[in-house]
Design a binder for these strands. Structure first.
Lengths: 195, 195
DNA sequence: CACCTATTATTAGCAACTACTAATTGTAAG
DNA sequence: CTTACAATTAGTAGTTGCTAATAATAGGTG
């Protein structure tokens, strides 16, 4: 339980709590903060936070619409895009978990690292659609579940619709992977050719 | 509006409607089917379908967990091991789906194909733990969601704990990917070194 | 003390229910 | 035709988690 907070402080915390767990009812929040339900309601009102039910609906709709609507950049990359300069370079981070590892050893499966590198490389290419053509990968050190990977990609060369992107992945300053990927930017021709 | 359906027929349709749009209240359903709210409630009861609010919560919780996992799931990637001769060769199949593709073009993201190749390559190595060291990948043709990929891997050379595995992935008899992977079999030393 | 803010309490009302009981309609069989 | 039974509809009470509005109370500050 939480006590003796200034109104402002309390409202900040309520906001945090709700954003972490939108399923909290006013009653539960009141218990958590050891104040009355009415105060919670006033606070929500002042901050423009909707009631629990509406929040749940938002969560439900967000996620279902995400699936259908835009499948653009962020969702198509593995890991988190931190910084990007289209056509030049980019940085992405992936926090590794047990799910990505071999059960016995806890070593991250190589294709997760490749996926990070590949999707970063594709996303820095400034074009509608980009496809990987050729790649050379080199795994330097095993990565263990829990380590945070930082991938840096750079467009090394480009000629026409062909880009050479080099990606370096580090964990705790140490290089664990490098890759050179040849990526092609594509227009609708390829699509039609097959479809 | 819908009319004159047998009870069974109606219940089937209600089920469909709800699964398509979990946000439908009993009132709205009653209007859609032109029957009373009570009948809808009885139908839900008989079919064990929870009330709208609970359905929304389910959707919200589902999707929020999807967000966190986001990356790749084991089963999705690896495909199905069809045949394997440890230390020699192996075949795996992956049925591609929209989830694995770029939204706009329907082209399968390259790392799914690599994941298939890589995990097959690793699984034909007859050892406790195997890790990918170096890889050369070549994507020959774009693969579209829905196509079924057949991966064949062969141990081309092996020296000590070092294996060269070549993998060919075909879709409908046509080669879409080839890769050469250098894989190391590992014992506990590596683990200790880092852990 | 009066004034103000913050907090709490109280009441009425709503949506979308559950759970239960009762009435009505339909329909087939004796 | 009537009785029997299922299906449907209606109605009531109670629940959760609210909104909206009004009122009461507590704590300071000038």
């Amino acid at each position: 339980m939480i006590r003796n907070l200034s109104k402002l402080e309390r409202q900040k915390r309520i906001k945090e709590y709700i954003s972490k767990d939108p399923f909290l009812s006013d009653k539960k929040l009141a218990e958590l903060f050891n104040i009355s339900v009415q105060t919670i309601r006033l606070d929500r009102l002042e901050m423009g936070i909707p009631e629990m039910r509406k929040r749940i609906v938002q969560v439900a709709k967000n996620t279902s619409s995400k699936d259908k609507v835009k499948s653009l950049k962020k969702e198509e990359i593995i890991g988190e895009l931190i910084d990007i300069e289209l056509g030049k370079n980019g940085i992405a981070i992936l926090k590794t978990t047990k799910d990505m590892a071999f059960g016995r050893t806890g070593i991250i499966r190589s294709h997760y690292i490749f996926s990070l590198a590949d999707s970063l490389a594709i996303s820095i290419i400034d074009t509608e659609v980009a496809l990987t053509g050729i790649a050379r990968l080199s795994y330097k050190k095993p990565v263990y579940a829990g380590e945070t990977l930082v991938a840096k990609a750079r467009v090394a060369r480009s000629r026409g619709n062909k880009y050479l992107v080099s990606v370096h992945v580090k964990s705790d300053q140490k290089e664990v992977f490098t890759g050179k990927l040849v990526i092609f930017s594509i227009n609708d021709k390829v699509k039609k050719e097959k479809a």
